[in-house]
Amino acid sequence: MSRQQVQRIGFALLALAAITVVLPILLVIGNIVVRGLAAINWEFLTAMPKNGMKAGGIFPALVGTLLLTLGTAVVCIPMGVGGAIYLSEYARDTWLTRAIRLAIVNLAGIPSIVYGLFGLGLFVLFLQFGTSILAGSLTLAIMTLPVIISTSEEALRAVPMEFRTVSFSLGGTRWQGIRNIVLPQALPGIITGIILGLLRAAGETAPILFTVAAFYLPRLPRSPFDQTMALPYHLYVISTQVPGMPEHIQYGTALVLLAVVLSMNLVATLIRSYFRRRRQW
């Protein structure tokens, strides 16, 4: 066999690997879309579940997921972006900075179920928030923090150093340079990172298992100290915990969750490519 033939076969194998990776993705999405679409109608989205969840809609789960995502955003956006600004603009290469980076890397690697344990220990029990939207949001926020910090830091660092130098040379303080130039320029990247982080939070089940999620609660939450249903947990419940569950409701729920997450993904991608094209540097 000639070297060219080896190369051709090799490349074909690589392509095959790539196809093996992406085909199942299409299969998952296609399967859920096709089988879930049958369940989707206005009532499914806006009605309370009935009959031990075997009928009715998923409204409280949908609302619960939106509320949790919102709560997560409120906490982790300022913390994450602030932390990223610190790392990119203020921190020097000291042992403290290295410790912070190490902390972030490890936060990113902690299993989501361990976040759930932590949330249970700190927010639910120790701080006595109880199983509540507050406890769940805080848990999800801490889980999302490293994602937002690292993507935001990357966006900040991508802004050319020279802009900061120019700002300094024109009598700007460090913060003025950040405020007026660095942050606006990094904003699209930061927003993309935030959406990607929140999308993960919206789809997570393990951290909310013991901190907020209600098995079956056919009403809307009334306060931040209330429990709530949530889409991912609901899907888990109806696919493993309830015998005799109609299949179309399972697929419908999976589809809604998938749609929420993928549309956020799409928005992030669009923002990124739109601003990348318009960028002035």
Binding site: I25, Y236, L257
Partner: peptide, 19 residues
């Protein structure tokens, strides 16, 4: 390929478990 792989990263684990 790249966006599809990114989509995979975003699919909630409970959905993959369901599948």
């Amino acid at each position: 390929l790249k966006p599809l792989i990114e989509v995979l990263a975003g699919i909630p684990s409970v959905v993959l478990g369901f599948f």
